[in-house]
């Protein structure tokens, strides 16, 4: 059974938590992309008409330390793409803790679809 329903309101604190998460995720993601873009521009190479390196998670940390533009850009992209998904996970957890099973199930369904997207992308990539 679902918990008490107050029209429009999410469980206490959930919206504020999500708002903070979105703000932080956006700032960190944009910060990483900005550093990567500066490194790219400073390197003097044109971003167009060249092949780009595939994402290599194993080498990401070392490449970040080595100030490679692509690594900072990949890190920024990963943070940006993860931010909305963490938002769904946070909301799902918040609804589950409040005993709102129906809303928690909806959030879990969204995460399942994203997991399928990851699997489909990996299978096709």
């Amino acid at each position: 059974m679902s918990g008490p329903v107050s029209p429009g309101a999410a469980p206490a604190g959930v919206e504020a938590r999500i708002a903070r998460l979105l703000t932080l995720g956006t700032r960190v993601g944009i910060g990483l992309l900005a550093v990567g873009s500066l490194l790219l521009v400073a390197g003097g190479a044109s971003p167009l008409g060249r092949s780009w390196p595939r994402l290599d998670p194993a080498a990401l940390l070392a490449d970040l330390v080595a100030l490679r533009a692509a690594a900072w850009l990949w890190a920024g992209l990963i943070v940006m793409l993860s931010t909305p998904l963490l938002r769904v996970a946070t909301a799902t957890l918040g609804f589950a803790r409040a005993g709102e099973r129906r809303m928690a199930a909806l959030g879990a369904a969204v995460l399942l679809v994203v997991a399928l997207a990851v699997a489909a992308g990996m299978a096709a990539g």
Partner: peptide, 25 residues
């Protein structure tokens, strides 16, 4: 919009369809 775009962007990313050099700036 963020979640919708993220679901498809993941597919593009894993299939090598996102150019970080263009996407960053």
């Amino acid at each position: 919009i963020g979640v919708t775009a993220a679901a498809s962007a993941v597919v593009y990313l894993l299939r090598g369809g996102i150019d970080p050099y263009v996407a960053g700036p």
